[in-house]
Simulated assay, not measured.
Amino acid sequence: MAQPIRKMRYYLMDEICIHNKKEDCWIVIYRNVFDLTPMIKDRLDHWNCSMDYLVAHAGKDLTHLFHENGEPRTEISLSTGRPRVLFPPILEVAISEFAKTKHAMWSQDPFYHIGRVTRRPRRIRLINTLTAKVQHMNVCDEDSIYDIQEKYKQRFNHHAGSYEWRKFSNGAKCCGVLNLNGTLDENGLTDDEDCDVELPPPSIWLYYTDDLTIA
């Protein structure tokens, strides 16, 4: 079996919004996903109200507060007549050098950048031929079959690797093994996003291989 290729990770907003607390803080800027948890943990002994404000926005999309290059948007203060940032927590930094990239704002720091928001969520149907259970699942358009397999394993079946994942084509007459490194589209599991009629989601068939050692 071909080995999966590691690449950029993509996320659904549903996956991001649950990272919404001090112990687990993600934010989004122009579809870029940042995990600010290391900075927050590093600042626990140097806390302030601006850090509280940052945590209050955890799990949210803050694109409207930044320029596309990650620079913070500003406005003119009515009291001083000078520019001020719209989102003050951008001025906060980690204390320890191991928790940041030197001289970089966290909105531009590759240390915190963990992936991208998907350009389009996809709904698929997974059919377990052993249990006859049908599971619907939302995934990212950019996800490879391996990525989908890993998400399915985490959410529904820890033994997902003990199944061979297949597709049917030519009117369900031809069965083919899926390329783990390919996306849904690259495996021929397409949908018509411009279609006015809601079509059934693509189906993936799971065939048990009688090997529970694969996880």
Rank of each mutant, 00 (worst) to 15 (best):
A2T: 13
P4S: 13
P4G: 12
I5D: 07
R6F: 09
K7G: 06
M8N: 11
M8H: 03
L12M: 10
L12P: 05
I18C: 11
N20W: 03
K21I: 04
K21E: 11
C25T: 09
W26C: 02
V28R: 08
I29M: 12
I29Q: 10
Y30H: 15
R31N: 02
D35Q: 07
D35C: 11
D35P: 12
L36A: 05
L36N: 02
P38N: 01
M39Y: 11
M39F: 05
K41H: 14
K41R: 14
K41F: 05
W47D: 10
C49L: 10
C49F: 12
S50M: 12
S50N: 11
M51G: 04
D52W: 12
Y53I: 06
L54M: 15
L54G: 01
V55S: 07
A56C: 09
A56F: 10
H57W: 12
H57E: 03
G59C: 12
G59P: 15
K60E: 11
K60Q: 15
D61C: 03
L62E: 02
T63Y: 07
F66L: 02
N69E: 13
G70R: 00
G70S: 08
G70A: 06
R73C: 07
R73G: 10
T74P: 01
I76S: 05
L78S: 03
G81A: 08
G81V: 10
R82D: 14
V85E: 12
F87R: 01
A94R: 06
I95C: 09
S96E: 08
E97P: 02
K100W: 09
H103M: 13
S107F: 00
Q108T: 15
Q108N: 11
Q108W: 04
D109C: 14
D109H: 12
Y112R: 05
V117A: 05
V117Q: 01
R120F: 10
R122W: 03
R122T: 06
I124C: 08
R125P: 05
L130R: 15
L130Y: 11
L130H: 13
H136K: 10
M137E: 10
N138D: 14
D141H: 12
E142S: 06
E142K: 02
D143Y: 02
D143T: 02
D143P: 07
E150H: 06
Y152N: 01
Y152M: 05
Q154S: 13
Q154M: 06
Q154I: 08
F156I: 15
A160Q: 04
A160Y: 13
G161D: 04
F168H: 05
F168N: 01
S169L: 00
A172Q: 00
C175Q: 02
V177P: 06
L178Y: 03
N179H: 11
L180T: 00
N181P: 04
L184Q: 02
E186I: 01
N187V: 00
G188T: 00
L189I: 13
T190W: 03
D191L: 09
D191G: 05
D192G: 03
D192K: 13
E193D: 09
C195W: 07
D196S: 12
D196P: 03
L199A: 12
L199S: 08
P202M: 07
S203Y: 03
L206D: 03
T209G: 01
D210F: 14
D211Y: 13
L212S: 08
T213F: 07
I214Q: 14
A215W: 06
